[in-house]
């Protein structure tokens, strides 16, 4: 019995020691999650080859799970959205945004509508969406919830629940497109990158669903790393990691995100996101 118990402790100890040498990362599940492990597994391999350490991808089911994994030091690196990045960095002192996609400097959200609504594309905010059914993406999404909700509140000076006939949260951008395309919801808010990729892949039937408005630009996704990684993996690790990310040029890897390439970023770039989130009450002030 004693032997058995000590054996168990040995296993636990050994496994935690083994983990200490591994860099774990995660990514918010913002689109179709099937075969995520396959896709991000390649990214893990790329990082491992350059950084010469073990790198592991940990799949999560929700935005908040990725933030929590980061808080708990289960992952040291994460591909966050604008909002989840702000939440994570607020909770973990010393953590910093080190890279973003080139497109993330001028990100936009599309409002899309089902053909039966008769809504047309316009440059001004389409006030006629009031009284329709409306779906956001995930509750923790920047492009799928934070920014569209901000502009909706700005235009109507009311909470979405009292503007629309029904408000839903689809969970991710692919689902938002599918729901509006099938007519389950009349209007939706979607990340422009996901929309354009699915359009290119021929998944969208433009006779059923169309873009009716796009938001002004804002900064979005980012790679965020914990402040204590230098201590854990050696001096200058953060810089090495940043370099590895911005020199990633393999198109198959970049398509997982999907981004053209990564560029340097820092925490201050995301101040407007924090302000917006406080403004609509997602982050308390």
């Amino acid at each position: 019995m004693k032997k058995w118990i000590s054996g168990c402790f040995a296993i636990i100890l050994f496994s935690t020691l083994a983990q200490a040498q591994t860099l774990s990362f995660t990514a918010i599940p913002d689109q179709n999650t099937a075969r995520l492990e396959q896709r991000f597994g390649k990214v893990a391999q790329y990082l491992a080859d350059i950084l010469k350490i073990d790198v592991k991808y940990i799949p999560v089911k929700s935005y908040s799970a990725s933030v929590n994994a980061f808080k708990n030091d289960q992952v040291q690196l994460a591909w966050f959205g604008g909002l989840s990045g702000v939440q994570a960095r607020r909770a973990v002192a010393g953590s910093q945004a080190i890279a973003q996609g080139e497109e993330d400097q001028y990100f936009v959200t599309y409002l899309i509508a089902h053909a039966s609504t008769g809504l047309q594309r316009s440059d001004a905010f389409p006030k006629s969406i009031a009284g329709k059914t409306f779906t956001f993406g995930s509750k923790g999404s920047t492009s799928g919830r934070l920014m569209p909700e901000y502009y909706i509140r700005q235009s109507f000076d009311q909470a979405p629940k009292s503007i629309f006939k029904r408000v839903g949260f689809s969970g991710d951008h692919s689902k938002t497109i599918a729901l509006v395309q099938s007519g389950s919801y009349q209007v939706g808010a979607v990340n422009f990158k996901v929309w354009e990729r699915e359009l290119k892949e021929g998944k969208i039937d433009t006779s059923q669903v169309q873009v009716i408005w796009k938001t002004p630009t804002y900064v979005d996704y980012n790679w965020t790393v914990r402040g204590d990684v230098d201590k854990k993996f050696g001096k200058g690790f953060t810089r090495k990691l940043q370099n590895a990310l911005i020199t990633m040029h393999d198109k198959t890897l970049l398509d997982s995100f999907p981004r053209k390439q990564f560029i340097k970023a820092d925490n201050s770039m995301y101040a407007p996101i924090l302000e917006t989130a406080m403004n609509i009450g997602i982050i308390e002030k």
């Binding site: 929700s62 908040s64 933030v67 939440q87 909770a91 995930s138 509750k139 923790g140 997602i282 308390e284």
Partner: peptide, 9 residues
């Protein structure tokens, strides 16, 4: 409850 957790509250 889910919303509160999602907002990290």
């Amino acid at each position: 409850i889910d919303s509160a957790i999602s907002d990290d509250k």
